[in-house]
């Protein structure tokens, strides 16, 4: 395939580049294309130019398959572009449109030469651009998934803090549904905190847990059992009235000390560790003091 027709193809692409570029950018910026506005014209132009340059280089080496080695720089560049668009919030269709919009101008330029051997090359090139647009889609989706995965991990970490309320008293405010993967994170965090703080009592507050079904209860019990094995007692607090009813209806039994609020649980924890909260002095009479 590396013949005169290839050279001719390259020379046409080089010669017609300004026209291809112009009509490509026009179609990218056309009213119905959603690409406008979110990315600067100059940036778009640089990307388009670079892409044409890489395309010429790759075709010059005689390759015709988008997966071949010669197209690696082009693929890398497109990967970068679609990754950055994924982060900017473009849709996959918009990202693929960037490549597909180049098809018409290039095919037109090849047909415009009137040379039948060049017009015959239009078909493989169009197929090549299709492959490249599929590649951008793949990279786009992969980077989106990466973002989602990272967010999920961050949420899991953010929502399982262990806080120290007092010497030897820890609180674990749970927020969100407890599934098995989160339970293991919660359990590890809690147990490590028990070791680090030499805690005697851990209060598990489930005010932020939307529903407690048998599975969640089982996860809770596992955590409590593990904490007990380490030598720390657990108190469950923050069971909302509806949840308490649901639990009873479901026949879920938490055979642990439970309190309605975190404050009650904390008071119990203080009592168990031999402490008490007392008022330092009698409250000032209200009303008169303020004047």
């Amino acid at each position: 395939m590396v013949t005169d027709s290839s050279d001719a193809l390259l020379s046409v692409l080089a010669k017609e580049e300004p026209r291809i570029l112009r009509s490509w950018l026009e179609s990218l910026n056309a009213g119905d294309s959603p690409q406008t506005g979110r990315i600067r014209d100059a940036e778009l132009r640089t990307q388009a130019q670079a892409m044409l340059q890489h395309l010429r280089d790759a075709l010059g080496s005689g390759a015709s398959d988008a997966k071949s080695e010669a197209f690696a720089p082009l693929r890398d560049m497109l990967g970068d572009i679609s990754r950055s668009r994924a982060l900017q919030g473009f849709t996959p269709a918009e990202t693929a449109h960037f490549i597909l919009a180049a098809k018409d101008p290039i095919v037109e330029a090849l047909n415009g030469t009137g040379d039948p051997s060049l017009a015959a090359r239009a078909w493989p090139i169009s197929r090549l651009l299709d492959q490249l647009s599929l590649h951008t889609m793949e990279v786009f989706l992969a980077s989106r998934e990466e973002v989602i995965g990272r967010q999920g991990q961050e949420i899991a970490e953010l929502s399982t803090p262990v806080v120290q309320l007092w010497d030897g008293i820890l609180a674990l405010p749970l927020i969100g549904t407890l599934d098995s993967s989160r339970t293991s994170v919660v359990m590890e965090n809690l147990l490590q905190a028990i070791v680090d703080e030499e805690a005697e009592i851990a209060i598990i507050d489930i005010t932020g847990v939307p529903t407690v079904d048998t599975l969640v209860a089982q996860h809770l019990l596992k955590t409590i059992a593990a904490a007990r094995l380490m030598g720390a007692d657990c108190i469950v607090s923050g069971i909302r009235p509806q949840i308490a009813q649901t639990m009873v209806h479901l026949g879920v039994e938490l055979n642990v000390v439970s309190k309605a609020t975190l404050a009650d649980a904390f008071a119990l924890a203080l009592r168990r560790t031999g402490r008490a909260v007392v008022r330092a002095k009698a409250p000032a009479p209200t009303g008169e003091d303020r004047t």
């Binding site: 293991s184 359990m187 590890e188 147990l191 490590q192 028990i194 070791v195 030499e198 805690a199 005697e200 596992k222 059992a225 593990a226 904490a227 007990r228 094995l229 380490m230 030598g231 720390a232």
Partner: peptide, 21 residues
């Protein structure tokens, strides 16, 4: 902690034993 988690996952909650830190 790792041992406690293993025992719980094995279903051995050792309810007859007292524990301390």
């Amino acid at each position: 902690p790792a041992v406690a988690i293993t025992l719980v996952e094995l279903g051995l909650e050792l309810t007859g034993i007292k524990t301390a830190l």
